[in-house]
């Protein structure tokens, strides 16, 4: 049920980056920075085409957005490892190399080291170099962030996700289809989405703060009372992905599970038609729509 993280390990990075860019452009998500992002991605792809970026325990991301996050994560981890190994080595070297030795002449007392206490040039160097490192990290963060948070003007499908204690409702807007499930039924609700298409998620909460999180998408967002959050998902790979509430929301927080099933667009359409007919034929089985508890809603979206 969970997509294995390394399924695409042996495919070419270059091809995938190109595909990710293409799929984003096709979906019309990218409003600006198109050329610049493509250039940066291309440069990154050329630099890394010889080797696949390792995933360092994380998901490679089954959405276009999640894949961008994976690349940022992998790059940042590499930087962290370089810095970490350097500092680790310096500490370890100090500990082993400068352990106390007896003073000369068989005296039991410890030798006295030179009492130096600063080195301004060195101190300036190790102030400036970290500034540059975090500057570079910040630059790539902003690029990725703009991709991940970009919201298209013409999404292929639009789903309103309502989180409540303790379950989820998926409302296919304009299609008259609703999916609902909660902790009592133990029937985890499943959101069916098309692959390769941009899906708009409108995220709200009916009661307390919840977290919409799909690990394989490398993405989470709070569902909050009083706030409407918008974001896009472009699932690139078919499969069933497990999702779960991440923000602690009360007694049965652990049971607030859902799944996302990504299928090709044609299959998605036939599922949608079947579900429409089903829910029209059996209106009593369709759960009543949940209404957020207040008129005071603020719309956000990065």
């Amino acid at each position: 049920m969970i997509l294995p993280p390394g399924d695409r390990r042996f495919r070419g990075t270059l091809a995938r980056v190109g595909r990710a860019v293409a799929s984003r452009e096709a979906s019309g998500r990218m409003k600006g920075h198109k050329t610049r992002n493509a250039v940066v991605l291309a440069l990154g792809a050329v630099g890394l085409s010889a080797c696949q970026l390792p995933n360092f325990g994380g998901y490679r991301g089954s959405t276009a957005q999640g894949y961008d996050t994976h690349e940022l994560y992998a790059g940042a981890v590499i930087a962290a490892i370089v810095v970490g190994v350097l500092v680790f080595a310096l500490i370890t070297w100090s500990v082993f190399r400068y352990r106390a030795r007896p003073a000369k002449g068989g005296d039991a007392s410890i030798r006295m080291p030179r009492q130096f206490h600063d080195n301004p040039v060195l101190e300036i160097v190790y102030t400036v170099v970290p500034v540059i490192i975090v500057g570079v990290l910040f630059f790539f963060t902003v690029l990725t962030e703009n991709n991940v948070d970009a919201v298209s003007t013409h999404p292929y499908a639009s789903i309103k996700v309502t989180a409540f204690q303790w379950g989820w409702q998926f409302n296919y807007q304009g299609e008259g289809v609703q999916i609902i499930g909660n902790d009592v039924t133990q029937q985890y609700p499943q959101m069916v989405v098309p692959t390769g298409k941009t899906v708009r998620i409108t995220l709200v909460s009916n009661d307390v703060v919840h977290g919409f999180y799909v690990p394989a998408f490398n993405f989470s967002r709070y569902a909050q009372p009083g706030i409407v959050n918008l974001f896009d998902l472009t699932v690139t790979h078919s499969g069933v992905y497990r999702g779960q509430c991440t923000q602690f929301c009360g007694l049965y927080h652990s049971e607030m599970v859902f799944t996302v099933k990504a299928v090709p667009a044609a299959q998605y359409q036939s599922w949608l038609r079947a579900e429409q007919a089903n829910q029209a034929d059996h209106p009593s089985q369709a759960p009543p729509p949940l209404q957020p508890s207040s008129k005071y809603h603020i719309q956000y979206g990065y």
């Binding site: 310096l90 100090s94 400068y98 080291p113 102030t127 970290p130 490192i133 975090v134 910040f138 902003v142």
Partner: peptide, 29 residues
């Protein structure tokens, strides 16, 4: 994000100063 990143800089200074304090010392454990 930027301000959070920047906290790494003074923290890094501290780390290097701690290493500098041990550097060429006579360490007893």
């Amino acid at each position: 994000s930027l301000l959070s990143f920047l906290i790494a800089v003074p923290t890094g200074i501290k780390f290097f100063n701690w290493i500098g304090t041990m550097w060429r010392g006579q360490l007893t454990f």
